[in-house]
């Protein structure tokens, strides 16, 4: 619950930084804060009270059922949000690198990183 609220506040701070800043690098830092907040929210949704990590070893209670299979009795955390966040973090790094290379290219062309100096898309 606390982690969920923390993630939502980080998302709001990230959106605020993206809207209020003029420097392109600072906008990308705001994007990275927004990314971290989203991952915290997704992990907080999958948490189960007093549960262990989703790795079945000696710490988790197991028993044999009638057909000879293994029945997991101990409480584990929901593994689906963990898997989603795992891939989302890696994609986040790649997208951040792409954004930064656009910023570097823009600086080579226009010699400024202030977003008010680029007026081609204003009307």
């Amino acid at each position: 619950m606390m982690v969920l609220i923390c993630g939502l506040l980080l998302m709001l701070i990230g959106i605020w930084a993206m809207l209020i800043k003029k420097n392109i690098i600072r906008i990308i830092i705001g994007f990275s804060i927004l990314d971290t907040g989203t991952h915290l929210v997704i992990v907080a949704i999958g948490y189960v009270k007093h549960a262990t990590a989703p790795i079945v070893d000696k710490a988790v209670n197991i028993s044999q059922n009638a057909e000879g299979g293994i029945q997991v009795l101990g409480k584990v955390v929901d593994p689906v949000p963990s898997a989603l966040v795992l891939t989302a973090i890696v994609i986040g790094l790649a997208v951040t690198a792409l954004l930064l290379s656009f910023a570097v290219r823009l600086y080579k062309v226009g010699n400024s990183l202030n977003i008010n100096d680029y007026e081609e898309l204003k009307w």
Binding site: H39, L40, Y47, A51, A53, V77, L86, V90
Partner: peptide, 20 residues
């Protein structure tokens, strides 16, 4: 955030977040 993931019982995510 990576230590928070470790306390929320998601060690894979904690590892990824700490390195990346």
């Amino acid at each position: 955030a990576s230590i928070i993931y470790l306390l929320m019982a998601a060690p894979d995510v904690a590892m990824t977040e700490a390195t990346i």
